[in-house]
Design a protein around this nucleic acid. Structure first.
Lengths: 344, 344
DNA sequence: CTGTTAGCGCCTTCAC
DNA sequence: GTGAAGGCGCTAACAG
């Protein structure tokens, strides 16, 4: 057992009652300086540290914030986790990370595990948990959603979940506009999983931007990936097989852009001289690609940080503000004007 | 509160005593089929889920495995965390991740937080916590170290910590040998932080390989980074400023190799035609660099997995085996023969 | 097999 | 201000 010295030991050694020792430790109520000192010294000598499990049981709070992420090894979510850590850093609360791996069942299990822990609040990053489940959850514990839509209020007047999101469609429009301005007309789009909200919205933004520019949408140029590198690679292979000409590839996230980059490299296509490449997210590593990747940035870490702060303010009963986020284009070296031969 | 329905509620509804209900749930002792069924049904109807905090208090186990990582957003550690998750997946135990950020003080705080939680065992990934502290820890709770040396036994006969490591020096030798075989003679080395054991060993391997080949070690070609991308970039800039010729760059980890790659790109140096580039770790993204990065692989995820399994077997009182790991060279496109002009 | 009785370690009224 | 007593929810002897 990690715990061997208890509050009672401390009290005995300090010559006071356990309750007094408790009061000194929590600092809630005034205690004689003499006794305070005695307790502190006993704590020192015995190397006492409170058993948080017992504390949790006694006061009905665990000081844990459950965080359901989709993949602990995902470069993308990692940034958010970092933000959450930062946002919680100065508080007494600690994050508890569990991965759902985009599997409803697994996510459900994660949620149950977290609630059984229990946690005082929940932050859910993406995922496929049905709205109904989230709604139910929100009635039991403060819930902040990041990167997924807020479930509709259940009409009971109960506080629904909070939701932090970026305007994905706008981001996609920014990306397409950038390519259009460079002179591209045949822009391939590697979308994410069809059942993924972010993916849907980014695809919509792509469509809207083309429509706005009066350009037709060529279904041959729209591919679906799963947000992983390999699927971006496969998408470009497929694109090349199809034979529909294109001068730019817009991937719905940076990881797929990396995969696309590899496929282009293998086929001897230069970026950006032969094909322009555009990503979405702006991961740390994206700046270190060759050439450095132009991408639509979303303030990932900031969102994690804000999610944590939002949770804290809900927990503290303070007024909350639900910030909104704007994506922005980060121009680097992977996009340029299309090759002269393809210009109209 | 996340918990509102208790075991007592279940027992009352099922018309049995709390202890019987408890027995049914834990499945340890036989209970009448009738009562078992009644309890199960009550659990269903009430949507009961056990309060793990209370369970933990009662049986003196928390079912938590504390994991001290250095950076939750590190691509490298993320792989290990994933492995740990996998290794724990089929058990009742769950990992609790906390970051130390390579700061002794912060790591110490993380350790304390974890022990106060408390946890039933500890996995520490890297870091700078003094051996003495780890030794002390190991007497209180099973301890598995990954990527850092095992503290010397304290002579008390108590079980010391377990340690999972790869042969870093061998890895570095493999890397250098590969470059030597390609014909390189002027091989720059970007080392890690001087106080980092892995970094020290890799540097040693580099030295040994050169010595073994009868080549002098040019101090001008040895730089120090901090295992982050930016430091790899800075190192190459410095190398270029120094003016000492080199035909290959061996970075002590992939992330610094990415930074080095960027600096080379900015200076118009082609990889591998002008300069060969070699990394260490084999991160997932390394295969997607341009060109795909040749690197010395260490079985990161496997090590995380094994660390978790090792913890479980210690906890279960089963006999343990402490596996050892061999790095291996993963040849990709970033290394080639040096340019003809530089050949002897 | 099953109900009763004690705690696990701490916090929080309640009287003094 | 301070100690005693009760309880958080659950498990583990202890008697039946």
């Amino acid at each position: 057992m990690a715990h061997t010295v208890t509050l009672e030991d401390v009290a005995r050694r300090a010559g006071v009652s356990p309750s007094t020792a408790s009061r000194v430790l929590s600092g809630s109520i005034r205690v004689t300086a003499r006794k305070t000192e005695a307790v502190m010294q006993a704590v020192q000598e015995l190397g006492y540290s409170p058993n948080q499990i017992a504390q949790g049981l006694a006061r009905g709070r665990s000081m844990n914030i459950g965080v359901v992420t989709q993949d602990i090894s995902s470069v993308f979510y990692a940034e958010m986790l970092r933000g959450i850590e930062q946002g919680l850093a100065d508080s007494e609360y600690r994050p508890l990370f569990i991965s759902g791996h985009w599997q409803v069942a697994e996510e459900r299990a994660a949620l149950d595990a977290l609630l059984g822990r229990p946690v005082d609040a929940l932050i859910v990053l993406g995922g496929h948990t049905p709205d109904a489940v989230l709604q139910l959850l929100a009635t039991r514990v403060p819930l902040v959603l990041v990167g997924r839509a807020q479930p509709p209020a259940d009409g009971s007047g109960r506080p629904s979940a909070y939701s932090l999101r970026v305007d994905n469609a706008l981001g996609a429009r920014l990306g397409v506009q950038h390519l259009l301005e460079l002179g591209h007309r045949r822009i391939a789009f590697i979308s994410g999983p069809p059942d993924h909200v972010d993916a849907q919205e980014r695809l919509r933004g792509y469509r809207e931007a083309l429509a706005h520019a009066g350009l037709p949408l060529d279904p041959q140029l729209v591919l679906h990936g799963d947000f992983q590198e390999a699927s971006g690679e496969a998408a470009v292979e497929q694109l090349l097989t199809r034979g529909s000409p294109f001068t730019a590839v817009f991937a719905a996230n940076d990881q797929m852009a990396f995969g696309a980059r590899l496929a282009l490299y293998r086929h001897g296509l230069r970026v950006p001289q032969d094909v322009s490449l555009l990503g979405f997210d702006n991961l740390t590593v994206s700046a270190y690609q060759t050439p450095p990747l132009t991408t639509v940035e979303q303030p990932t870490r900031q969102m994690g940080h804000d999610a944590a702060q939002l949770v804290l303010s809900v927990l503290a009963g303070q007024p909350q503000t639900q910030p909104s986020y704007q994506p922005r284009l980060v121009q680097r070296d992977s996009t340029a004007a299309p090759p002269a031969s393809t210009r109209p």
